[in-house]
Amino acid sequence: MAQLTKDQILFIDDYLKRNKVKYWDVRMELLDHVASAIEDELKKSISFEQALQNVHLSFGNKKTSKSLNKSRTAWIINESIYADNSGYKKFIGDKQKALQSNLRKMYGQALITFFKTPLLLVTYILLLYILFKANGHIGGEALLKGLASIVSIGVAIPFCFSLFHFIKYGRSIYLSVLSGLTFGLLYGVSSLLFYLPKGFIFGDDKVFSHGYFVVMCAILVPLLFTQTKVFFSYLSKIKKIQSRLA
């Protein structure tokens, strides 16, 4: 089998980058597939460029695209291996969906574990009881600020770890899906609880509703616990993959 040169491999890597395959781990897998397929195609005595074009099409990408000109009066036909990357987009999208679905299952399982672990469950109930009894002893604003700080720390820690990994290893699809789901869910739920129902927090008479605060804690405590647990367990899985590349 004709082996590709280092320059040809670099050319394929650049071709994938220009076709917006931004995650290094996806690009690594695609690069090997494209290179292996080109090596096979070259047996048919065709040029490297023609072989790359054949492989480009085999992934469901097109070699032409059309766009309107500036004055919107005519179509501009663009014909090249950089004209359309719909096949690679679908490749990345499918992988993201598979990872997201797996992560959601992990969150679900972690949540079930939380409520099935006697020690955690007792601590959780005790915490809610103490918070409920704190009514009148600690001001509403202070309680809300305290909860907001805990949630912020819960978001900031995984964020810092994600940022560190991004700087150290580059853009990974695993990390991107993990960070997206972790921050998305935490931010979404806490925003909903903190900002939307202002009427619940301070009631119609603008008095702090302690009952609603306890409900907020009842939702956010298990959520923070499961998100943090899944985040670090998945991060160690990513680290394992990255260590194999070293």
Partner: peptide, 30 residues
């Protein structure tokens, strides 16, 4: 390719497949 990789990625995400990376012919292979 459009059928193979979604299947592989789904099986990997479900924990039925593990991955290994090796350097082969100027590139990394998964």
């Amino acid at each position: 390719e459009g059928a193979l990789y979604p299947a592989l990625h789904k099986l990997e995400a479900e924990g039925l497949l593990d991955v290994e990376v090796a350097k082969v012919d100027n590139r990394l292979r998964k």
